[in-house]
Design a protein around this nucleic acid. Structure first.
Lengths: 188, 188
DNA sequence: TTGTTTACTTACTTATAAGTAAGTACCTTT
DNA sequence: AAAGGTACTTACTTATAAGTAAGTAAACAA
């Protein structure tokens, strides 16, 4: 059961990068194989279908997110929020990538059903985490906002995802402006 | 100089719908021609290249937006805002489409340069309109918010674009929640 | 009424995509 | 050392994509 190479992991990494930069429909096995110096069929060996690769990319990301929120759960609420903002901003720094949820959402109609379901699950998870963070934060007097935590969470998660995308068109500063405003709006 | 058929307009309409639902890279001339009951080459007659079609779709949308803001410029500021929210929401009602700017942003790396430039121009235009609306609204005591109008505009435009996309994953209510929260946040 | 332009169709080319079947070399286990 | 599995490569198939050249029928202008 021991892996003798790390080709599969390299495919996953590159595949994730490609989905975040050009989108799942534009991703091709040729691109992956040529960049890794292997053959087309080698990719099919590890991921028989493109759907299987796309699905594993999404599920791995869900796992990473769950691990991250668990790791930062003992931090202060402002720090948790900041960690998320910064983890999203990292996408911009390497090749103007966007987040997986946003990429999946904009390509939604072209995704196989299994990936649509995984993407939905991912967003429900992230939005749910924001709802709890905001609810708890307001209860403790850390965050200040009007309306339901669910609605505020919707604004934040969509503004960040949209912000990464829009940053491609008008510059990375756009994302920073969004973060600054969101933070400002949560202060007393 | 008289057009004897309206095929070109039909291609534009369907093309716009397709870009907003499946994205520019996934749009194909075969799809357009089969849905309009014409041949592949007929589409090439009106739009020699896919780029020419994509570019005209963007430029037409820019023209429509300019016309719209001009038409509603005499309305109250809240009404102008509401008009925009509702025009965006219409996308959801027909086949869970997303806005052209968001679609262009998420497919940005796959677009020809001319379309990248047009998409940027479009977003600059829309964001600029929001900046002015917010600046004027605060000056007149109609809108209330902290921070710079430019930053608030960034949040609103990206939350709306991201909201349309996320609505595909978690339901149309998500978009309505965003609008409700944005409105709430602009009240005194 | 003849010639020209408009709006196509027919038939094709070239490129690229996902996916597969069969073969091979190395590694591990027995 | 023999047998089996792992991780590939080679060579292929089928489908679909954008784009083009040449032909055609109807509308229009002279």
């Amino acid at each position: 059961m021991k892996a003798r190479t790390d080709t599969k992991e390299k495919i996953m990494e590159l595949g994730t990068d490609l989905v975040e930069s050009i989108g799942y429909p534009s991703l091709s096995y040729q691109q992956i194989s040529s960049q890794l110096g292997i053959k087309n069929a080698a990719v099919h060996y590890h991921f028989p279908s493109k759907e299987s690769l796309g699905l594993e990319i999404l599920n791995t990301a869900i796992g990473s997110f769950e691990k991250m929120i668990s790791n930062i759960s003992s931090l202060g609420l402002w720090e948790q929020l900041d960690t998320f903002f910064k983890s999203y901003r990292k996408h911009l720094e390497s090749n103007n990538k966007i987040c997986l949820i946003g990429a999946s959402a904009s390509d939604y109609q072209e995704l196989p059903e299994s990936m649509q379901a995984a993407a939905s699950e991912y967003l429900v998870l992230v939005k749910g985490w924001f709802v709890e963070l905001l609810r708890e934060g307001r209860e403790e007097g850390v965050f200040h906002f009007k309306g339901e935590p669910k609605h505020k969470a919707a604004v934040i998660v969509s503004a960040l995802a949209g912000g990464l995308q829009h940053a491609r068109l008008v510059g990375n500063l756009h994302y920073d402006e969004i973060v600054e405003q969101l933070v400002e709006d949560l202060k007393p």
